[in-house]
C-alpha cells in the first residue's frame, strides 16, 4: 500500500482499527433486524459504509482489491435473486406470493431463529443494498473531470478492477 495515496497516517491507523468493528456492527444490525431496531436497509448501508471509509482513508485501490466491481455486481444480483426466490417459495409452499411459509411456534418468539423467512430476507436485502451502494459510490468516485490546457473539460475513469 503506497504511502502517498489517501489521507495522513493517523487516519489510516485509526481506520485500520475501526473498520472491522463497523463491519461487525453492520452485520449485527442485519441479523438482529427482526428483534431490535434495524434491518436489511440500514445494515446494508453500514456495510457499504465500511468500504466507503476504506476508500476515503486509503485511496481507491485498497477496497477494490478486496471487492472488485464485478464481484460487487454479482453480489448485488445474488441478493436480489435470493430475495425473489424467498418470495416465490412462499407461492410454492404456501398459498400466495411472498407468504411467510416457515412455521412460527410461539416458543420461538424473541429468539434469533424465529419469524420464519424474515431473517433470511433481511440478509438478502442487506447484501443487495450494501453491494448496490458500494457500486454507486465507486462509480461516482472513480470518475474525475480534469481541465485540459485549452480550457475544455474531459472526464476520465480509473480502472475499477473489473475482471476481463
Amino acid at each position: 500500500m503506497s504511502e502517498k495515496e489517501g489521507l495522513s497516517v493517523i487516519v489510516k491507523v485509526v481506520t485500520r482499527w475501526i473498520v472491522g468493528f463497523v463491519l461487525l456492527f453492520g452485520l449485527y444490525i442485519v441479523i438482529f433486524g427482526h428483534l431490535t431496531p434495524g434491518g436489511g436497509f440500514p445494515g446494508g448501508v453500514i456495510i457499504a459504509g465500511t468500504f466507503v471509509l476504506l476508500t476515503l482513508a486509503f485511496g481507491k485501490d485498497t477496497p477494490l482489491r478486496k471487492l472488485n466491481s464485478t464481484l460487487a455486481s454479482e453480489l448485488d444480483s445474488t441478493g436480489a435473486i435470493i430475495f425473489l426466490g424467498i418470495a416465490l417459495l412462499g407461492l410454492y409452499f404456501g398459498s400466495f406470493f411472498a407468504e411467510n411459509f416457515l412455521t412460527k411456534l410461539p416458543s420461538s418468539y424473541f429468539k434469533l431463529f424465529s419469524a420464519g423467512v424474515i431473517p433470511w430476507a433481511n440478509l438478502a436485502i442487506g447484501l443487495k443494498v450494501g453491494a448496490s451502494i458500494f457500486m454507486v459510490f465507486i462509480i461516482l468516485s472513480v470518475t474525475r473531470v480534469v481541465g485540459l490546457p485549452n480550457g475544455e473539460k474531459k472526464m476520465t475513469r480509473k480502472p475499477t478492477g473489473r475482471r476481463k
Binding site: G39, F41, V45, V129, I133, V136, I139, L140, T143, V145, G151, E152, K153, K154, M155
Partner: peptide
C-alpha cells in the same frame, strides 16, 4: 419511510452523476 430514505439516496446518486456529466460536457 425506511424504503423512502433508501430511494432518496438512489435519486441523489443519479442526480449527482447527471450533474457531473453536465459539468464535463459544458464546464
Amino acid at each position: 419511510v425506511v424504503t423512502s430514505i433508501v430511494i432518496g439516496f438512489g435519486v441523489l446518486a443519479l442526480s449527482v452523476s447527471m450533474a457531473i456529466r453536465i459539468y464535463e460536457r459544458y464546464g
